[in-house]
Design a protein around this nucleic acid. Sequence first.
DNA 1: ATAAATATTTAGATTTGCCTAAATTTAAAT
DNA 2: ATTTAAATTTAGGCAAATCTAAATATTTAT
Lengths: 223, 223
Amino acid sequence: MNYSVAEENYIKSVYHLQQQWERVSTNHLAEALQTQPASVTDMVKKLLNKKLVHYEPYRGVKLNSAGKKVALQIIRKHRLWEYFLVNTLGFGWDEVHDVAEQLEHVNSSKLIEQLDRFLGHPQFDPHGDPIPDKQGNITYRERLPLIQQPNGQLLEITAVGDESPALLEMLKHHGIEMGSRLRLLRSFAFDGSVEIIIGKAKPTIISQALAGCLFVKWIGYDE
Amino acid sequence: MNYSVAEENYIKSVYHLQQQWERVSTNHLAEALQTQPASVTDMVKKLLNKKLVHYEPYRGVKLNSAGKKVALQIIRKHRLWEYFLVNTLGFGWDEVHDVAEQLEHVNSSKLIEQLDRFLGHPQFDPHGDPIPDKQGNITYRERLPLIQQPNGQLLEITAVGDESPALLEMLKHHGIEMGSRLRLLRSFAFDGSVEIIIGKAKPTIISQALAGCLFVKWIGYDE
DNA sequence: ATAAATATTTAGATTTGCCTAAATTTAAAT
DNA sequence: ATTTAAATTTAGGCAAATCTAAATATTTAT
């Protein structure tokens, strides 16, 4: 099967919104796709005809297993291209989204498999999100909100919350990147900021907003 | 300015057909684009509105300088992607056309400049066709039909006439590739076949059809 | 439980890129 | 110089993906 760019974008959006809501509403989709609710209703009916979604009028939409499969392949392409743009072509990760958004719709299984091989079968994209494999399997990895972790823990950055230039600038300033290790020292009730040690540097305080964008896994208490 | 995929394909086709005919006819364009003459007339009017072509009804169409500029950038993208597919991802050059046809429409100047840098600013694509630079300048290179060259000349392959799997297979069999050196010994009146020495191998005879697909530059008479 | 507010769908249009069939223009042939 | 053939354009329509405005369903609040 081959789907139009518009169809692929709808499928991808439903997939992402489903991570948060069981049934995805028309308005949410319209918001995510920057389009009108009426247009969403139209397209959802087309996806229903193509047997990619469950849908009942007024009740929201949900990918069925065929739809999920399609979504995972689009996401695979998107994230492989992001990895390529950052690691091969030297893009910053705040610059890759729009380009990957276009590249993900290029249709060639040979292209994507050769790209995957060239890149060394990466498992995670530059933002820490997992890259589904050819079969659609995802390697999950701890992705715990930094806020809420117990003090003293040695942690490793596994993902970031958004891909804005502003966040990237902030992280660069602190010398934080994917895989960085840090220790959570304490948090302040006043403004929700937290004190951390990044690598072997001196303790620093980062804002609640910044901390809220960081996801980690546990490494242990010991140095 | 930003052009649709359909518009870009028309512009590119006009450019290529212009290499052969001063004014490009509606039927030729329709043939090249696998579409109907009436559709061509429609689109040509749109390109006229966008001031990319000269056009008079019944008289054919021709890119103006703005149109040429656009065409060269599309061709630049197409050929850079072909180079990438062959040299980085290991495609055969008979497999690249359709994929490059899609990739050439991805819109990001940063992408194409970084790709160009990553590839080392190649000047020729895998078929020997020149890659226009960012400004649209083309490095020309001798591209003489093998047939018609004087006997005894030492020649180097600079381009091939088509990109079919069949031609690639044939060339592989003879050990001919871009940059191969060969000497033309003689041609046979009977079927137009020619006898050549490829590199330091023994003389072989290749068919007129094959010879007609090869383009060369002169290196000299001496060994 | 009913009214008000919100969400969703339907109806009818628009744009892009394409089509077929008919009309028109240009080129070729007698 | 007409007639015939070929090429091109015009007219009218269609499908995909979108829109606005109006109608309908659902949810929330009184």
